[in-house]
Structures are given as structure tokens and as C-alpha cells.
């Protein structure tokens, strides 16, 4: 459904998103998790065509956002972080405007709006002015607006920010109920939020993807392994094999030119053995440093309290 490849976005000198790649399968609910300022909103804005990418490609359902933005946008129902609503319109009018903007055929507009009203739980407030609605209801109107025309892909940016716990639960249930019919990408900086709704998660930190996996796998990896970065002057063919053969080493993965990451269980510090193996092999050891798992850093920065007040995500 979504293919994001090597996406980068600069704001002047600031690189908000760096070489981000991930794919989303049809029907999947993907969590887009990262601390405030990680680049979540920027990434979503590029996917939805609000901002152009500095480099990299985004394709949604086969259409490229750069070559055919309208084809991409037609497939997406987008709820930005602040629901884009006109206070002077009633709920129905707001959704009707969305239906017209999406250029649904005239005859289908009314049915599409009615359906979105029903699915977002807006029946009771459909005649009220957006200006007079509570924050929770506005969020629902935003969600209803995204649902108009039943687009195959829903992109929801921090859909529960600023809501009270009861509203959060309602919105979450709503999102889960949508899961069957839509592919959903949900961004959040709150760990339990994503865990409650998403099977798979992309974790982003300082503009980079640090992990893409299911929650279960991530949790396992997080608890059990650490990484050591080894840089050598003369990489030889047998180096990887040699490192892999060391006791307790779980995996050896390349990390740029002439460098590898050696993964070991947390309990076993094998730096000494690694150094010895490199020196004995005559590879010319240049550096050996424990790599704090970036995933771990991210998790530390994530809000783990449910329903904590959060504001000021860019």
C-alpha cells in the first residue's frame, strides 16, 4: 500500500527526516512511533503530499506522490495533528466540504457523508457548529472527515493528543473498528497507545528509522541484546565469519565502510574477545565502541505513561 524509500526532508539546514524507508502492507495497522520532534509529522506530511520530499520516493497504491499527487491523495484519508476544521461550518457541512474537495460524484456525496457521520460517532452533533464542539468531538470530526469516501488508506497523526482518558479510549476503539476496511498508519509518541492498536511498528528517532518490527520481536530484542561497533583498516573475507564464531555472538551486520555491528546478549560483554579476534587476524583494529542501542534510547524518550499531557510536537 505504501512504499517509502530513502525519504529525506530538509528544512533549510535542518535535516528533519533522513533516509527513511518503510513499507506498509494493505490492511495493516502500522504504528509510527517516536519521541516529540523525531520527524513523524514531517514524514506523514510528505506521504500526504503536503510537503515535497528533498529526496527519496513515496508511492501509495502504485502512484508516486511526485509524479501523480492527485492519484495518491485520492487514496488517503488524512487526519493532521490539529484537525483542519472550519469553525463556522456545521459538522455536516464540514464533511460535505471534504466530500466535494475529494471530488466524490455528486450523487454519492450525501451517502458518503452520512456514512462518515455514523462511523465517527457524530450523529448527535451533526447539525452543530464545529466552533461549539469539545476537543474530543473535533477530533472525531477530523476523523470523520478523513473517512469521507472510504479511502483505502488512513493516516492519523497523533489522533489522541490533548484528549482526556475517556475520549482517548473512545478514539482508540474507533480506530480499531476501522482496521478491517482500511490500511491505517497511526503516529504517536506514546508507547501504550501504539501497543494498544498496532501490530507492527516503525520507530523513528532524530529523523531516522531505528527499527521496523512487530512489538513482540522488538521487546525481545530490546531486552536481550547489545551491540558493539568494530571498525577495521583492512577488512578481510573471513572477518565476519570469525566474529560470528565468537562465543555468545548473535549476529554480525555491516555498518558502513569497513565497520560491523556485533550483537551479543546483554549479560555477555565480549569486547575483549572481539578485539583479540580482530588483532589476531591482522585486520588492523581502528575502533571498538559499544553502541548504545538507538532503540533503547528511543524507548527511554518515549512517553510510557498513558494519557500523559503532551504538546508541541512539530
Amino acid at each position: 500500500m505504501i512504499h517509502v524509500d530513502h525519504l529525506s526532508k530538509r528544512y533549510g539546514a535542518v535535516e528533519a527526516v533522513r533516509d527513511v524507508s518503510f513499507h506498509v502492507a494493505p490492511g495493516e495497522i502500522l504504528g509510527f512511533l517516536g519521541p516529540n520532534g523525531a520527524g513523524k509529522t514531517t514524514t506523514l506530511r510528505v506521504i500526504t503530499g503536503f510537503l515535497p520530499a528533498t529526496s527519496g520516493t513515496v508511492r501509495v497504491g502504485g502512484a508516486d506522490i511526485f509524479d501523480d499527487p492527485a492519484a495518491v491523495k485520492r487514496q488517503i484519508g488524512y487526519l493532521p495533528e490539529n484537525p483542519p476544521l472550519y469553525p463556522e461550518l456545521t459538522v455536516r457541512e464540514q464533511l460535505t466540504f471534504a466530500a466535494r474537495l475529494k471530488q466524490l460524484p455528486r450523487r454519492q456525496q450525501k451517502a458518503a457523508v452520512d456514512e462518515a457521520v455514523a462511523r465517527a460517532g457524530l450523529t448527535e452533533v451533526r447539525g452543530r457548529l464545529v466552533a461549539n464542539l469539545s476537543k474530543g468531538y473535533r477530533q472525531r470530526v477530523g476523523l470523520g472527515q478523513a473517512l469521507v469516501g472510504a479511502p483505502p488508506l488512513l493516516i492519523l497523526d497523533e489522533p489522541t493528543v490533548g484528549l482526556d482518558p475517556k475520549q482517548i479510549i473512545e478514539i482508540r476503539d474507533l480506530i480499531r473498528a476501522l482496521a478491517g476496511d482500511h490500511t491505517v498508519v497511526l503516529s504517536s509518541h506514546i508507547l501504550p497507545e501504539v501497543r494498544a492498536t498496532c501490530a507492527r511498528v516503525v520507530i523513528i528517532h532524530h529523523g531516522r528509522v531505528v527499527a521496523t518490527d512487530t512489538f513482540a520481536t522488538l521487546a525481545a530484542r530490546l531486552r536481550h541484546t547489545q551491540k558493539v561497533r568494530v571498525a577495521v583498516a583492512r577488512p578481510g573475507p573471513a572477518l565476519v565469519e570469525r566474529l560470528g564464531a565468537l562465543p555468545d555472538v548473535v549476529a554480525v551486520s555491516p555498518d558502513g565502510e569497513g565497520a560491523w555491528l556485533v550483537e551479543t546478549p546483554v549479560a555477555a560483554d565480549r569486547r575483549e574477545q572481539i578485539a583479540q579476534a580482530v588483532v589476531e587476524g591482522g585486520y588492523g583494529l581502528l575502533a571498538l565502541e559499544p553502541r548504545a542501542l538507538s532503540l533503547e534510547e528511543v524507548f527511554l524518550e518515549l512517553t510510557t505513561e498513558d494519557a500523559a499531557p503532551a504538546e508541541g510536537t512539530p
Partner: peptide, 14 residues
């Protein structure tokens, strides 16, 4: 100022 510009720009409208 209201942020509704995002709605316009992410709709299939040029």
C-alpha cells in the same frame, strides 16, 4: 493560521 490549509493541500486539488 487555522491549519485548514493542510486540508486543501492534501486533497486531490491542485
Amino acid at each position: 493560521a487555522r491549519g485548514t490549509y493542510e486540508l486543501l493541500l492534501t486533497a486531490p486539488v491542485n
